[in-house]
Design a protein around this nucleic acid. Structure first.
Length: 579
RNA sequence: GGUUCCAUGGUGCAGCUGGUUAACACGUCUGCCUGUCACGCAGAAGAUCGCGGGUUCGAGCCCCGUUGGAACCGCCA
């Protein structure tokens, strides 16, 4: 007897005797005939039980989601169902066996389930029976398979690095694991296999990759969770463009293989960090729509308007975005919403002009006619355009307009849903001044190579750029990487600038500082986020839809009950007191 | 750490201005039904309205607290 997947039977199979297994998706008992939709991983097929058959009573007692075994013959249906793939055939049952019953389930296994997420997470195994979750997991499998093959073909070797490792002072908070044998000491779960992969380069493996779990003890978001997977890769004897080419290859091939959307052609557009911030107000711009942030500070050098006058005195900027043909779409209330949004980002307020036969808006009465006309001229404003203006300190203005740009585009549905628009943002600054703590900090990754090599740190700190790059798609950061700094003196100097002295750093990163003494090849790499890639392919807003067993948005696992308390003896063994 | 929103039979929701037998859909159970496919028809069961306190003659509804959930800010790349 041939074994098929339930969802694959076609008219050609008529006459075949088959053995099938599956779940009772739905039972239709017509009083005489009983129809059952039998579901397995591949789909459903209808089976028919007739009055008088030995197992008729058994079949009529089946509860939904029971597991059964069927032997029977594939026959052409009397009445066909064009809506399902197997709708032309059905199974005439000859043997029927109940393998497992099911109690009443907490929610129905249907595509358009009404169950809320916490219920679905609590019974994740039932949710996985639904097509959506199942398909997302099957896709995840296909994508990972594809990626592994691709990496293998490109000459990368896959290596597993430790999950129990040492805490690192940089970056996110570590998840920590107590040590029984060394009381008072702790392992940490890796935020990324950063150090290991660099050590593999010192080890001479030249091209490494890993589908690496990464752990970060930070508050989750819809697209961010405690543990996630990255395609971690590292290469020796390369420059930035070599790594970017590999990244372009991976993203282009994965997206064009698994998505029907139009993928931006290679090479992807490159933007410096400065360009990205200046034009889009973010280092992860969505390039599916224009609406650039434009500088209009020059128009107000001699303004009488007190707010702008003050901004100019304080060396701030006045920037704007033009929302085409939207003046009539934003009411007073809408504008208040937008204002709240920018205030959350520290902007002092939002000014606007609506250009129609008459010019209205918050600035209409306070600016001179000449100024209003100058704005129109410089920004090439047309009828019914809405001009949103924010003034103040540069970074705040850019960020706030960046947020507005995204919000307005969402409101007006400006982004083409059928595009996957990639770009690469590079030339990140090495350092960033942290106003809150009044000190310099790394802007990105401390192990990155600054432009200019040994002379890198001679100029102004804020002007120092690094060989650091992000891959961005539709406004999402998809990957992050860098050419690493393999010059120990330079590396230590970088850490000194952010306030760690050499002894401390050498001690914290002992492995790196020792290993790099023994012939470290120049190297660099990157790490595309697997979960993000899947979200984009499947149009999921929530990362939990592409992972099998995600924790809830608060970081708890309602199904497993984690995190959980330990037994007193366990705590004692670990030498831990819980306050 | 902060802001906003949510919590009502198994699931999802309604419940207006404080007075209802707490409505509806799906699911479940019973009966009828031999070509359904979201089967149909008739009927039934099933809810201490998350928990604790308060205001009130009276609370699902108002107030305080608490627990759990969601989104966002901080945090995180």
């Amino acid at each position: 007897m041939k074994k098929y997947n339930n969802g694959e039977f076609k008219i050609e199979n008529v006459g075949e005797e088959v053995e099938l297994y599956g779940w009772v998706q739905r039972k239709r008992n017509l009083g005489g005939l009983i129809f059952i939709d039998l579901r397995d991983k591949s789909g459903i097929i209808q089976i028919v039980i007739r009055p008088g058959q030995d197992f008729y009573d058994l079949a009529s007692s089946f509860k939904n989601e029971s597991v059964i075994r069927v032997v029977g013959e594939i026959v052409e249906r009397e009445s066909k169902n064009k809506n399902i793939p197997t709708g032309e055939v059905e199974v005439n049952v000859k043997e029927l066996e109940l393998l497992a019953t099911s109690e009443d389930i907490p929610f129905e296994i249907v595509d358009d389930t009404t169950a809320l997420e916490d219920t679905r997470l609590k019974y994740r195994y039932l949710d996985i029976r639904r097509n959506k979750l199942k398909n997302n997991l099957l896709l995840r499998n296909d994508v990972l398979h594809f990626i592994r093959n691709k990496m293998y073909d490109l000459g990368f070797i896959e290596i597993q690095t430790p999950i129990l490792t040492a805490s690192s002072p940089e970056g996110a908070r570590d998840f920590v694991v107590p040590s029984r044998n060394f009381k008072g000491k702790f392992y940490a779960l890796p935020q990324a296999p950063q150090i290991y992969k660099e050590l593999l380069m010192v080890g001479g493996l030249e091209k490494y990759f890993q589908v690496a779990p990464c752990f970060r003890d930070e508050d989750p978001r819809a697209d961010r969770t405690l543990e996630f997977y990255q395609l971690d890769l590292e290469m020796s004897f390369v420059e930035e463009d070599d790594v970017l080419a590999v990244g372009e290859d991976i993203f282009y091939d994965v997206f064009s293989t698994f998505s029907n959307k139009k993928v931006s052609p290679k090479p992807f557009r490159r933007l410096s960090y400065k360009e990205a911030i200046d034009n889009y107000g973010t280092d992860k711009p969505d390039l599916r729509y224009e609406m650039l942030i434009q500088d209009i500070t020059n128009l107000f050098q001699d303004t009488e308007f007190s707010v702008f006058k003050k901004v100019i005195e304080e060396k701030g900027i006045i920037n704007a975005i033009v929302v085409k043909n939207a003046a009539d779409k934003y009411s007073r209330k809408n504008m208040d919403e937008l204002t709240d949004l920018v205030k959350k980002r520290q902007a002092s307020g939002l000014a606007f002009l609506k250009y129609n036969e008459e010019v209205t808006g918050s600035l209409a009465k306070v600016l001179s006619e000449k100024e209003i006309e100058a704005v129109k001229e410089q920004l090439k404003v047309e009828n019914n355009d809405l001009v949103l203006i924010i003034s103040g300190e540069r970074k705040i203005v850019k960020t706030a307009l960046g947020v507005l740009r995204v919000k307005v585009a969402a409101d007006l549905d400006l982004a083409d849903k059928n595009r996957l628009e990639m770009c690469i943002v590079n030339d990140f600054p090495m350092f960033e001044y942290d106003e809150a703590n009044q000190k310099w900090d790394f802007c990105h990754n401390p192990f990155s190579m600054p432009h200019g090599g040994a002379k890198a740190y001679e100029g102004n700190l804020e002007d120092i750029l690094a060989y650091q790059y992000d891959f961005v798609c539709n406004g999402n950061e998809m990957a992050s990487g860098a050419i690493r700094n393999h010059d120990l003196d330079l590396l230590a100097k970088g850490f000194e600038i952010v306030g760690y002295n050499r002894d401390y750093v050498e001690n914290k990163f002992k492995s790196i500082f020792t290993a790099f003494k023994y012939g470290c090849p120049p190297h660099g790499g990157m790490a595309p986020g697997i979960d993000r890639i899947l979200m984009l392919i499947q149009d999921e807003q929530n990362l939990r839809e592409v992972q099998a067993f995600p924790p809830s948005a608060s970081g708890q696992d309602l199904m497993m009950g984690s995190p959980s308390e330990l037994e007193p003896y366990q705590l004692e063994e670990l030498g831990i007191k819980v306050s």
